[in-house]
Amino acid sequence: MSSLRFTKEHEYVRLDGDIATIGITDYAQKQLGDVVFVELPDVGAKLERGKQAAIVESVKAASEVYAPLTGVVIAVNEALPDTPAIVNSSPLAGGWFLKMTLAHAGEMDVLMSEADYNAYVETLG
């Protein structure tokens, strides 16, 4: 049983047990356009909620991706270096960025539910 949560900065968190999978939302990939490169942190890196976790480069610009949670990176998506376009085609599945531990379980509670996030995106026009 996994639970899906979102940030206002258009990252998602999929929590399976005590492992969180992080990526960017479908709205985010549409805004960025064609992704050509993703700069990922090293496995073992400590991430702090709200601080830079990765950088996604589209054809037009580089954009920061922020850590939605505090914790330690335990895996990065090895498919992204060779096939970054998977972020566009499958942002919530094959296009995930990294997996991390969750230092403070309470941080999940401040993230948005899918329904709240969808309503938020509606307001962005």
């Binding site: 050509v36 490169f37 700069e39 480069e57 610009a61 580089a62 270096p81 970054p84």
Partner: peptide, 10 residues
């Protein structure tokens, strides 16, 4: 300039 790898230099 051609950059090695895939990361753009802007």
């Amino acid at each position: 300039i051609i950059v090695e790898g895939r990361q753009p230099a802007r």
